[in-house]
Design a protein around this nucleic acid. Sequence first.
RNA 1: GCGGCCAUAGCUCAGUUGGAUAGAGCGUCUGGCUACGAACCAGGAGGUCGCAGGUUCGAGUCCUGCUGGCCGCACCA
Length: 684
Amino acid sequence: MILPVHALLRQRLGDVLTSLYGLAREAQPTLVIEVPPRRALGDLALPFAFELARALRKAPRVIAQEVAAAVGPLEGVARIEAAPNGYLNVFLDRAPFLRARLAGDVGPGGGTLLREKTIVEHTAINPNKAAHIGHLRNSAMGDTLVRLLRFSGVPVEVQNYIDDTGVQVADVVVGFLHIEQQSLAQVEALAATTRFDYHCWDLYARVTEWYEADKSRLAIRAATLHAIEHGEGEAARMGAFVADHIVRCHLKTMARLNIDYDLLTWEGDILRLQFWATAFDILKKNGSIYLQDDGPLTGCWVMQIDDDLAHGDARATPAADTPAGDAGGEAAEGEDSKEKVIVRSNGTVTYVGKDIANQFWKFGLLGKDFHYRPFATRIDGATLFASTSDARHATGGHDGVPHFGDARAVYNVIDSRQSYLQRLLKQALAAMGYREQADRSTHFAYEMVALSHATAREFGFVAEAESDRPFVEVSGRKGLGVKADDLIDRLIAKASGEVGRRNASLTPDEVRETAHRIAVAALRYFMVKFSRGKIIAFDIDEALSFEGESGPYIQYAVVRAANIFTKLQERHGIDEPALIASLTTLPETAITSGTDADDLWAIVLEAARLDEVVETAVRTLEPSVLAKYAFALAQGFSAGYHRFPVVNEDDAGARAWRAAMAAYVRRQLTSALELIGSDVPARM
RNA sequence: GCGGCCAUAGCUCAGUUGGAUAGAGCGUCUGGCUACGAACCAGGAGGUCGCAGGUUCGAGUCCUGCUGGCCGCACCA
């Protein structure tokens, strides 16, 4: 871990800049710390002298020289020198650096993040059909964000929002009742004996066609939706059953990928517990929304869309936010001002309204709470809770029910097509005067997953494979897409073949377990290796490949590092703790002098940067930063693995320091893989 | 029309508080298993960073304009 070194350097250099040039902390440039391109130049580099050159009327090189001369001894730092071009280069004390980290003296910590309760909402799949590949990007990104935050010491609550009262559930209910003519009892029997989520997948596509064949049938959908919203009759009971059962299917699918949740929040509970009514009162009193009495939106409660906010962050210039309350005035001034309907003229609330209520609740601003019930068992054996409207089913405030909601920061993991609506949420908070909450309300947006042409063809979607675009869009509505479980199954099957071929001594169970771990690494790495703003053209062959830039490549590096210690034990009778202990007495030249030493050390230094990389990943909300880092580190290790033999090395000093490098890389890569939700098999 | 995102090697992508010679995977060509496991490694070829201005000691990165592509801007969610 490198951040403690950064902190030490910033502290001391800040002092030096003050005493040398009379610069107060506020007057100093941010002390950017980077890694020089080659180890011979140093281990850390600071370019602040360039920035100060003008203000101090001195050449960067002179500043760097003066600072270097004034720094004095610093723990863990071998020397600091000014480069001819003006960089200040820092050389670390290599052997003590690695010893301290292997001894566990330097763990994660020292970051600058807000360590207060944070809610991350992700997954939120409509509970009406099987999860598909597109959903996996959401869940993989969201879960990795959660792990990154927790690694950084932030307490996180993971929520999965379940839209059990929406049109998509209604559509499947329509399919069962009107196309398949099934009773609730028959549907229950079906669910008990089939892949229910797959059945609903197909049924949903049929319902879409059924509507298209006769548009008048859309009235049935409207009636069914109304019945579900009001909890009336067979349709409502069937809707509840479908949602519950499909959610359990989704949980199983996600659990296969090491993804789970603290709480399921059900939209139906938001309705039944009148969360909206409460939020509505607040917004009305505040003037944030008002009844439109003129024009096409007559009879609707609408919210003024603030153009300043529409541009991005709800950053507050005092001029921009003070008069927000009087938006109730006529639209006289704003030629391009818009209104968003929150409550329809028929009195029903839109999705935005429900979301506003939910967002208020997440921040503890609603003055109301759900009841809670145990819903399922989590991966680690703990209880997954779900919201409920019924106090009788609730476990109350005792029995170990955590205090849900009431967070200081909220991340909503939702695809970028919903950016506009997510901005409305921020605006609603800001308009209410909850400026801080608006600022800490973050839309974690990402682009969609499409299919490559080859994969689209492979799945038989020929008609959709237009040639003018580099990818084919998936559509749950048309049943066009790759189901998550199918993909996971194929990955496991493929990996099983490989593992079986390479490890004849493994039992079938061991093969399967190993293949599963490899499949998870492959899939989850693929889902996070691209930056959020990129559309992924999913290609089955590329995803199934375990070579090159992949999760399994990283796992393979860790397995090899582990094997070194197995062999060391076998041939030299030395285990990892003994080896680490021996580092204090053996010569250090293998890591301190010469080209080979520089290259060995470079791998160690890179391994130490995990905490720095995690901080960057969180600051930029870009899990791909971690993925790329883990791959590069594995790559560095793999190269070193060929160049620096351990077990076959005769020199005890070289052997020990090389092994120490392997031990540290192994630990850091294992942590990095954990952050993308992947375990490391013992063999592969 | 307004707003957001995207444009870097043949293909897919990194390059993240502006910094030292623009990197990686795939593909392609050459070489390496008498093994700490070749799911690997070494090396070659491959780039006017969409275009034009601007800011700066320094721009793939920041600003302005433009071009091309995608997505939003519902009394759907």
